[in-house]
Amino acid sequence: MNRKLISDQDLVNLYVSGQESALEELVGRHKSKIYTSIYLLVKDSYLAEDIFQDTFIKVINTLKAGKYNEEGKFLPWVLRIAHNLVIDHFRKEKRTPIVTNTDGFDIFEVLGFVEESIEDKMLREQGHNELRRLIQLLPEEQKEVLIMRHYGDLSFKEIADLTNVSINTALGRMRYALNNLRKMMNQKEYSYRQAM
């Protein structure tokens, strides 16, 4: 059977019934979205990996104990666990995230690019670093919605429920996040042009 055609729910059922390989498929299918979401919130690759691992330990414990009841919503459920672990971490640390762009450069990989020159690769990495930096400059509420919607694939309704706000508030925060990112990118381009 081609596992790529199986729904998340069927993979969950296979895993609960004892097929370990179903978990491998679920992790492989969603690891990028989950890890990117965590990383953009904590801004530290080592901490992001720890939280990513803790998230799946909770997932495994729940599934193996037969306590999973989120039929058809595997990814939003996992992202909720990850999100709660991030909040727990910052509560324990009693601090808010600090903006930094010096961490994790060498261990993340950006997918989807093949056969590019060294110059192209450098330009792309510079672009990604800059984009990550600009995301970190967004107000926390806007950044949170952007990450959950864009990287976590949660619907605006799910984000609204998770963050205890109305859908319109969640949509408004996303709108401000995108507009602010766009403004910051335009300003940067303008500064470059002025300097040349």
Partner: peptide, 28 residues
Amino acid sequence: VLKLKLDSLVLEPSMSVISSILDYSRSY
């Protein structure tokens, strides 16, 4: 256009953390 730029920013966890998770499951 901005959405496409955001799409291209995809990060990956290390293989070792994936292995640890799968090992944990097998030994559960």
